[in-house]
Design a protein around this nucleic acid. Structure first.
Lengths: 106, 106
DNA sequence: AAGATAGGTGACCATTTGGTCACATGTCAA
DNA sequence: TTGACATGTGACCAAATGGTCACCTATCTT
């Protein structure tokens, strides 16, 4: 699996996007702290965090018996550069084309 | 399912991202034309196109017995505005925070 | 040392997803 | 008008995914 595949798959789940929201609002949270914000057992949250870590969207480090989690914006920035710009660069042109095509009578 | 959920789920599959690439390179292709670029039966491609249409990433219209497909950049633009910016706005700050946190000795 | 606390692993299960196929409909062209 | 062509539908199957749980290790606190 490629890096961008891992990132897109990680972003595909609403729970994982919510976890990113939580970490965006405040970084450096433990598993237990994140779990308390979700209607899900600790194990479910662990799995989601693992997927996010494997996509490098979250970075974690041990601090004693705790593990603190941080948001890593770099992969999203890379998508932005590789994917989004690709479409939005020519945004106006594409929209105009589409509009013209759709207005051609069949 | 919310709109952005549909878009993220649609983008999660590499075949669907490839279809978007194809349509980005050249719009207005038929199912058969798209199928010929993929190692997959027509039916698989149809399912993927359906997912992309339901996410509004692709717009299609019938032309005789054909169905021509167009890339719609708007949903990606919306993600860009709602999601990506959210992280990249404070990109430098977040990176600096992360760096500082990671450098604190445990 | 011993209980409480934080996190990790592997098995397990239900649901979703990606893909194929048999069959069917609508449209073009000779 | 008949055959070829382009697309559509529903059943079906294997694999991936999201979630829980029993059990385990490591660390902190008293």
């Amino acid at each position: 699996m490629t890096d961008d595949d891992r990132v897109f798959k990680a972003l595909a789940d609403p729970t994982r996007r919510f976890l990113l929201d939580l970490l965006f609002a405040r970084d450096g949270r433990t598993l237990t702290e994140l779990e308390s914000e979700l209607e899900m057992t600790r194990f479910g949250v662990m799995k989601h965090l693992k997927v996010l870590e494997e996509a490098a969207l979250v970075v974690a480090r041990k601090r004693g018996r705790e593990k603190v989690h941080f948001l890593n914006p770099v992969p999203i920035r890379l998508i932005h550069d590789r994917w989004i710009d690709k479409f939005t660069e020519q945004h106006a042109a594409a929209l105009a084309d589409l509009k013209r095509e759709l207005e051609e009578s069949p």
